[in-house]
Design a protein around this nucleic acid. Structure first.
Lengths: 221, 221
DNA sequence: GATATATTATGCGAGACGGTATAAAAATCA
DNA sequence: TGATTTTTATACCGTCTCGCATAATATATC
């Protein structure tokens, strides 16, 4: 993967700083917002259920422009997935990083997750990682690797979370942070799936509450 | 829904008993095995990813026969889903019903689930309910209702399981069977999803072990 | 102004799609 | 045997699919 163009001596900090007078006809679209629109469509209808015409209509770019900017449909899907992951990571990171007590931290994490999964004008869009696992991941090795990395990243973040809680004494030494992390991820997965079936937010929040109670009371045996 | 044909005085017990000499050209396919083949395809590639030509090739029925036997593609999908549910229910029921101690019972339940999710010649097919939730459930109310009923059925079966364990003293009175049931379902969902991404069976079994430990040691605070 | 470059816009093309109309085939009934 | 019934087999319809070839447009450079 070679970096194309991008004037050699670009300002080191902000990638968006100078308009950088480019040579030909100027773009009629902003790649970032077009990618966001494409992501919306893919999250709603999945890979097979979204046509290039749909994508073209949603982004305002006609098909040749789409193709030139992002490559073919699969390449575009992968780019939207990477965008999703970056967005989700950014949203989750502060919830994970906070110095709050374990309970509060988990509450915030799941609240952010629910915001992501329940958003969508034409119905809750769920978790794109989970949806991709359910569809493309079996047959496509590259996409499968991305999905697995998504699962792993979440597992690890939760594990760190529980381990630090154990160190501060919020969890007993008998608790297993890795097992708890997998249950925390399982809770993420179940609410993502159920959200797609339009389970009301309050029901999902009840599931989260129960899971948090179980995880925070763990190992006291 | 009117019952068509089926000679009025059919043997009450076995539905497969008499060949029942029918009038026209005999069928070249068995509806049951054709439906099973269609189910295999839908589980592998999903609704949008499976074409009528694929279904025709897999079942050995040409498209008009498919249409005559099962209706259009959506109707066929719904019939395959009902078949999946019936099969899964039959396989799970004995694991749920046994008089084994809670731990052993959960172990058997998850073993059966893993067998279902990991089967498939071209990769693990996962849970059809979960896959349908991820794809068609948002936009199609009928399919959504079936998916929700699938989730509910599982939640209820687990709740009964934990409640009876509580009555026999295997779980303390402080445990909440409904919360435990939702965690048990979440564990089902997470292994179904991860199976689709080809997570090895031993990893999934480790997740199951941890979840069982957590659930069986619950409420001892 | 002329040329080079980069994008947009139009539209084609070969094939796949879901669905169905029509004709051939294979059985029962009279 | 001939008529009836049920299914299979072939072929087609109009539409959508993805990808690209071509031409028009808008900018920077010379």
């Amino acid at each position: 993967m070679v970096q194309k163009r991008k004037s050699a001596a670009s300002p080191p900090s902000s990638a968006e700083a100078a308009p950088v007078k480019r040579r030909g006809r100027p773009r009629a679209y902003e790649p970032d917002v077009a990618l966001a629109k494409a992501l919306d469509l893919f999250r709603k209808d999945g890979f097979a259920g979204t046509s290039l015409d749909d994508l073209s209509a949603a982004t305002g770019m006609n098909r040749p422009s789409l193709y030139g900017a992002f490559g073919d449909k699969r390449a575009l899907y992968i780019k939207t997935y990477e965008r999703y992951r970056a967005d989700a990571r950014a949203a989750m990171q502060e919830a994970f990083k906070g110095d709050l007590p374990l309970r509060k931290r988990l509450q915030r994490i799941y609240a952010v997750a629910l915001d992501i999964y329940l958003s969508g004008e034409e119905g809750p869009r769920g978790c794109f990682t989970v949806m991709t696992a359910a569809s493309e991941a079996v047959a496509d090795p590259d996409i499968r690797a991305m999905v697995l990395s998504g699962f792993h990243e979440l597992d690890k973040a939760f594990a760190i979370c529980f381990r630090s809680a154990q160190e501060t004494g919020e969890l007993p030494p008998s608790a297993d942070p890795d097992v708890l992390a997998q249950m925390a991820s399982a809770t993420i997965h179940t609410i993502a799936i159920r959200a797609r079936a339009r389970t009301p937010r309050k029901d999902l929040e009840a599931i989260v509450r129960g899971a948090i109670d179980l995880m925070c009371g763990a190992g006291k045996g």
